[in-house]
Amino acid sequence: MLSPAVLLLLGWMIVPLSMTIYFSFLSYNLLMPGMEQFVGFANYEFFLTDPAFFEALANTLLLVGGVLVITIVGGTALALLLDQPMWGQGIVRILVIAPFFVMPTVSALVWKNMFMNPVNGLFAHLAKGVGLEPFDFLSHAPLFSIILIVAWQWLPFATLILLTALQSLDQEQLEASEMDGAKFGSRFVHIVLPHMSRAITVVILIQTIFLLSVFAEILVTTNGGPGYASTNITYLVYAQSLLQFDVGGGSAGGIVAVILANIVAIFLMRMIGKNLEA
């Protein structure tokens, strides 16, 4: 017997999913209303053979991977720093969390206009200050810039989770390892890191879900360009269906994105899921 809650949830997910699947088999362009017809897998073929798709796929993976690396490494370092007793601990911790409360659109705009702008941006001023040519981040290293912006947003989340993990480490274990002759480095590798592995897994899984669908930051800063240099799958789907008015192609892209997300999820669970077992 399916309970009403399960039915509701199924309906909630199945209706949009099946509509998307349905659209993905139609030639459906908003510029030609009433001309929809069944075209089989043509939309998929078109989407998957588009060179932009492979570029977007690579960008998506680079974006997810880059942000994960920065946030995990940076988050661990920050958590280690924040765990030290220091003056004004409470305020510093709140400040560290602050970026998480800034909306993606806003933070991307701030980064674009106030930091990375080649004329007025802070980085440009700094470069000029030391006599260097200002670097136009968003046009010369668009993907890297976006990775930086997104990483900045997610760093607090990672730091916070890793900090709580760090604080739950039994002090006596650290003292025991100290007596056992472990120096700071070995203590970190043999005691602290294994203790934090579960928290790191959680951070990786949660962030991956959100990072696969980064969109606002790209729309606001580079519009996926130059060319397709900073287009990820999510942005490609958007461009396909709403910039080129090709709902059929967009839907096919959406389904491809769902399948890709599942592949990534299975891959991740295989790789690190065992850390979540007690």
């Binding site: 025991a176 007596m179 002759g181 472990a182 043999h190 294994p194």
Partner: peptide, 19 residues
């Protein structure tokens, strides 16, 4: 501590749980 040549047994045992 490591250089004093002493070994300590803690009340909570302080074993390394992942080893």
């Amino acid at each position: 501590p490591a250089k004093r040549g002493l070994a300590m047994v803690f009340q909570s045992y302080a074993l390394y749980p992942h080893m």
